[in-house]
């Protein structure tokens, strides 16, 4: 090694630095192009903090009567929609996930169909799913449940087939080898391996669904979103505050519950 270290160091960091510079340049270029097209009106942007403060000031004090009379039942409906949507997802997705797992289904065609279903489900936002179902079932919680279900299939399906693919063949063979019927093979050899991930995925998705259901009402698919939209439309800011507060509390509670239950499950 005749070269001195200072030179070697330059050769070492030089290309890295160049790469980084290019990377940052691309990002800055994207930023500039985007900002130009978005046409931000500077007066509006400057005004934002003041407008926000004004909104928050008008929200105080929150409307307690409204909270108990309207918000609470609506929040309960939101929770029902999220829960039923999650359950429906689990029932429908379990067989799909099994069909989409490499170690169970050898046929690649079937697996690709499953993969396509999962990707399609995840690519469409739940609000857009809700638009479809409102057109089909009319406004109301049915559309909400269907939307939540349609959106969750992809998430649950993908994670669940990954979990199934990780299950070990040995344990299943052990149960087969004692001559157990297929149902027992499933219950004693397969299910115990899947159960922790199954429950954990279900809880995670339920948590996400609670958040997502909160807005479905905006397009008429039931839940607290409808109330939120109408309260904003009539400028009932103390009521809006009550709704936001209750959503915040429910979301925090759901997260707390899920975190603790998952610890128990795993």
């Amino acid at each position: 090694m005749s070269e001195n270290l200072a030179k070697e160091w330059k050769n070492h960091v030089g290309p890295k630095r160049a790469l980084k510079t290019v990377f940052y340049a691309i990002i800055i270029a994207a930023l500039v192009v985007s900002l130009r097209n978005i046409e931000i009106i500077p007066e509006f942007l400057k005004d934002t903090p003041e407008q926000l403060m004004d909104l928050f000031r008008r929200m105080w004090p929150i409307d307690v009567k409204f909270l108990w009379g309207f918000v609470a039942p609506s929040i309960l409906e939101t929770i029902h929609i999220a829960t039923l949507g999650t359950i429906a997802t689990l029932i429908i997705t379990f067989p799909l996930a099994v069909l989409g797992s490499k170690n169970i289904v050898r046929n690649e065609g079937i697996r690709y169909v499953m993969k396509f279903i999962f990707v399609a489900s995840r690519s469409v936002n739940s609000l857009i799913w809700a638009l479809f179902y409102v057109a089909v079932f009319g406004p109301g919680p049915v559309a909400g449940v269907m939307a939540i279900m349609s959106r969750s299939i992809g998430f649950v399906g993908k994670l669940l087939s990954e979990a199934i693919e990780e299950s070990s063949r040995n344990q299943i063979e052990a149960v087969i080898s004692v001559g157990a019927p297929p149902v027992s093979v499933f219950l004693k050899g397969f299910w115990p391996q899947i159960r922790p991930s199954f429950l954990s995925i279900a809880l995670l998705r339920w948590d996400i669904n609670i958040r997502e259901t909160a807005v479905l009402g905006i397009v008429g698919a039931g839940g607290i979103g409808l109330l939120l939209e109408s309260a904003i439309d009539v400028f009932h800011w103390p009521g809006v505050a009550a709704i936001l507060l209750s959503i915040f509390v429910v979301v925090l509670l759901a997260e707390f519950l899920v975190t603790n239950l998952r610890k128990k499950v795993i």
């Binding site: 001195n4 270290l5 200072a6 160091w9 070492h12 960091v13």
Partner: peptide, 26 residues
């Protein structure tokens, strides 16, 4: 910005050589 002085790198090189770690510098 990781702009190290050349003297510092030279000093580090001398030390690494003494420590028997010159070949591991980078």
């Amino acid at each position: 910005l990781q702009r190290y002085a050349a003297e510092d790198i030279d000093a580090a090189e001398a030390l690494l050589t003494r420590l028997g770690l010159r070949e591991f510098a980078l």
